[in-house]
């Protein structure tokens, strides 16, 4: 790969546009985890004495930070990137300037991480304000937000580069992200509901690892399994990005 400083030009272009539209964009994505927190955490939580040794709403909070990070990155590299690539010809215009396909990819990933940090960060501030993010331990969750963003930016862009039609994103959201959201330790601890063999299989779920990292960060706890979680997030992101770089070059320079 030959990423250069021109990747920042791509990032800056998205920022310039975002400054114009952030009110429209930020609100729905930001309210979504908040609604889950209130409805399930407080509503359903009233019927649950405790989960994994804490109040249900406290159990839910770190997972929802990871979900906010996932959503923040995902919209950017799916619908938005697809429109820029295929309809608005944004990338074609970039390729008339010194920007190269690798810069386009790097700039978009960086931007998706930025947005994931905005959403996850705002949500983190809200839960910290209501006392659900113990300080200073949960500060460790902050760098995990863009890391989660990186993983889902890499997953999303890999999908976007391969599909021929924008309609296929409904598959990505409904059949991939939604199940991840429901079955990745966010709402209930998987190890209490799954038996040995299934637990191993559940380890392939990408959202599981950021959620586990987040939850440990909130508690200020260390566990050897976090090495695996970090390795998974970084390793899978790196692998997908190498493939995405190849696909970007093929797609943009055809």
């Amino acid at each position: 790969m030959s990423v250069s400083r021109y990747a920042l030009s791509v990032w800056w272009r998205n920022l310039a546009l975002y400054r114009r539209t952030w009110k429209l964009n930020l609100l729905p994505n930001f309210f979504e985890p908040l609604l889950y927190l209130v409805s399930i955490g407080i509503g359903v939580g009233a019927y649950v004495n405790e989960m994994a040794g804490m109040s249900y709403v406290a159990f839910l909070a770190p997972g929802l930070v990871a979900v906010a990070a996932m959503n923040g990155a995902s919209f950017e590299v799916t619908y938005n990137a697809f429109v820029r690539m295929n309809f608005e010809k944004t990338y074609a215009a970039m390729l008339t300037t010194p920007i190269q396909p690798d810069d386009v990819l790097a700039g978009e990933i960086l931007w998706a991480m930025t947005r994931s940090f905005l959403y996850g960060g705002c949500f983190w501030i809200v839960i910290a304000a209501v006392g659900l993010a113990p300080l200073p331990a949960s500060l460790l969750a902050l760098p995990l937000i863009p890391l989660t963003g990186l993983l889902f930016a890499a997953l999303g862009i890999t999908f976007s580069l391969r599909i021929p039609s924008i309609d296929l994103f409904s598959f990505y959201f409904t059949l991939f992200l939604t199940p991840l959201f429901l079955f990745s330790d966010v709402f209930f601890p998987l190890q209490e509901r799954l038996s040995g063999g299934w637990l191993w299989i559940a380890e392939v779920l990408p959202l599981l690892h950021p959620v586990r990292l987040m939850r440990h960060a909130f508690r200020g706890e260390w566990s050897p399994i976090l090495v695996w979680d970090l390795a998974y997030v970084i390793g899978l992101s790196a692998l997908l990005l190498v493939l995405a770089a190849r696909a970007t070059r093929r797609r943009l320079a055809a």
Partner: peptide, 30 residues
């Protein structure tokens, strides 16, 4: 770095102004 291209179809950021689009291209060229 030394050439400029106007594509067959305009590829501008439509919600932004002429000045803002010019700034974006200035960034593309650093």
């Amino acid at each position: 770095m030394r050439l400029g291209v106007t594509l067959q179809e305009n590829a501008l950021v439509e919600v932004l102004s002429a000045v803002e689009n010019l700034r974006i291209f200035a960034r593309y060229h650093r």
